[in-house]
Design a protein around this nucleic acid. Structure first.
Lengths: 358, 358
DNA sequence: TGCTATTATGTTATCGATAACATGTTATCG
DNA sequence: CGATAACATGTTATCGATAACATAATAGCA
């Protein structure tokens, strides 16, 4: 790493924070009155209010949210546990979360987990709780028994908890894309294009979402009186590299396949590439559809049909849900815990376009 | 949105937090002693320590970081201001930030900004400061005069501040990818492949990073005694759609162009696609190189040569830097403020491969 | 053996704000 | 006109922890 020297300034004077006391003193009132002005509380005379406001403005006073959180037992902060931020999906969800949180006046305290080190989950949640978060969003996929800790640990958590992309469970609030429905949409679209020999490249089947998409594929095939045997499906790991491998295996096992439903767009990209390499025309000989609608997919060659999941809406809904839970609890009421499904939608592009058939 | 009903549990009992007092009382010691045990302070007898630890374990006590932050004037929390989370670049950076923060024992308080509403910046920073963050990371690109507020506002900020992807400035700490060097690497590579008529599709030139990449292109061309006139460069807006348009204009204005350096991989993707559409062979007739090394780029057809910027390292370095600043200040010392450059690297794939020439 | 250093623990003040309560003043009304 | 309500403001307690200071018991040493 090279360093380029830039002339440096000196240490900024570490002036201390302006506190409510400073303001009170300067305005010649009690701290309580300042507090009342800051919180727009009634029972402050106009004259006093103006005087205090002027001092606040002049001194650049901002109440310490920290101190306020302590006394009010409420921080207006949500804990967010994320996984796989370096991928586009989770970060889009986070984007939705951040937006909604902002709108509703909450900040986000983030914690990323990089693997499912189950033993550490208590610590992660603990570190959020010790900072008084009002609620927690779990923005991490469900993989294998990654959510096994729920049974032991969740009951100890004393704040509202909302899961994103988790298999609905009794008594737990979750917000999820309807992946099954997505699988149905994709497969039905291929059927509607006149294809009958439809293969599937799934994500890792330890992922609940991958399993659901596959389930949608199979159910739709069977509903149409067609076959969906195991050897018409290969498992990838979401990466383009795995998609390449899976497709090559699939085409060997299923040579007269006329359509592929890939579990995500990255793997679909590899299908397009390998098909091209093998001289298979897309969509004429092979229709291809992906899942996720990543921004690039519209510019693949040919452009990729796909299932769009509205991750930003997902994130937004999760925030709204957790905030609702917080308020409900504040009022000591009981909220029904039900999972919310966000429906995905079909996006038709060249890779399945019937108009491009010969 | 469809809702699926799941049987609901009742309201979890809103048990209140276990405080240090509860522990002290249960263990028959003063709160101070509990505090000493929790902080591994010396001067606690073994016997007492064990007793307290047992009670802590049994009651599930966790100190309130909030209360601790208040008295210690130190929160072990960093403020992070992000922009464009829904894109892959910023979120990779954030990934690096999150990793490093975790390692160093800091949490992240996030605030996303969606537009450069300059008037709101004071508020954003204020909301972070009012939560006692120990430092702030500004993870947002510099666009036009988006950083003009620095002059007015930064001086009022009393905590260390580190900028990512900002033009180095006097007296301000920033960590940046050396975009100029990236432009040089890309262009030089094309020259090394024997190309001489090299066009450029830049990002929006209001972005400092786009400007730097372009500057690298031009300087390298001129260094090699070649031309880099204005009409050999078109401006895009980073999107694939804009890349398509820019390439089509560029090829009109510069018909005998034999290589393109695109400002990012999304735009490069469109170049590949449009070249294909026009029957231009890549790389034989036209070599193409991108910037960013998005995961998909290795699977484009042909696979895309590109410049990789190590965004995770960028984020990590920024965190290390801000933490260093925090510590330095704690000790009342002065730290030299210098910008740090993260060097990008060249990744050669098929789209510029000399071995694929006819 | 008496004095200081070390160890062990407790008490009180403090961080910056709001809650709860108290007090005084001005309207309102029968 | 006196009682009560509404307004205006101040005082003290509190949130959950640690800092700073105080005290007591033990140990080491001249």
């Amino acid at each position: 790493m090279l360093h380029i020297q830039v002339p440096s300034l000196t240490l900024p004077d570490r002036k201390k924070r302006v506190t409510i006391k400073d303001v009170a003193y300067a305005a010649g009132v009690s701290t309580q009155t300042v507090s009342r002005v800051m919180n727009n509380f009634s029972y402050v005379s106009n004259e006093t209010r103006k005087r205090v406001e002027a001092v606040v403005e002049e001194m650049g006073y901002r109440p310490s949210t920290l101190a306020r959180s302590l006394i009010q037992q409420r921080s207006y902060t949500l804990g967010v546990v994320t996984f796989g931020l370096k991928y586009i999906g989770p970060s889009q969800t986070l984007n939705g979360v951040a937006d909604a949180a902002d709108e509703l006046g909450y900040m986000l305290l983030m914690k990323e987990i990089d693997a499912f080190d189950l033993s550490n989950i208590d610590n992660i949640i603990g570190s959020l709780l010790s900072r008084q978060v009002d609620g927690v969003l779990w923005v991490a996929p469900e993989i294998g028994d990654s959510h096994a800790w729920l049974d032991k640990s969740l009951e100890k958590v004393s704040v509202p908890f909302v899961f994103i992309a988790m298999e609905p469970r009794e008594g737990i609030m979750s917000v999820v894309t309807d992946n099954y429905q997505g699988g149905v949409l994709a497969t039905q679209h291929l059927l509607d294009c006149g294809r009958k020999k439809i293969g599937h490249i799934s994500g890792p089947l330890t992922w609940w979402e991958a399993e659901e998409r596959k389930r949608g594929w199979r159910a739709t095939m069977e509903n149409a009186g067609l076959e969906a045997p195991e050897h018409h499906c290969k498992e990838g790991n979401w990466s383009s590299a795995s998609g390449e491998q899976a497709f090559n295996q699939l085409i060997e096992a299923f040579p007269d396949m006329d359509a592929v439903f890939a579990g995500n767009d990255q793997m679909a990209l590899s299908v397009l590439r390998e098909a091209h390499r093998r001289g298979i025309q897309v969509p004429e000989q092979l229709a291809v559809i992906g899942f996720d609608n990543i921004p690039e997919s519209a510019f693949f060659y040919p452009s990729l049909s796909t299932i769009s999941q509205n991750l930003q809406l997902l994130g937004k809904t999760a925030v709204q849900t957790v905030v609702e839970m917080i308020q409900t609890r504040q009022e000591n009421q009981i909220l029904e815990l039900q999972s919310k499904f966000i429906p995905p939608s079909l996006i038709v592009r060249e890779s399945t376009s019937p108009t491009r058939s010969p």
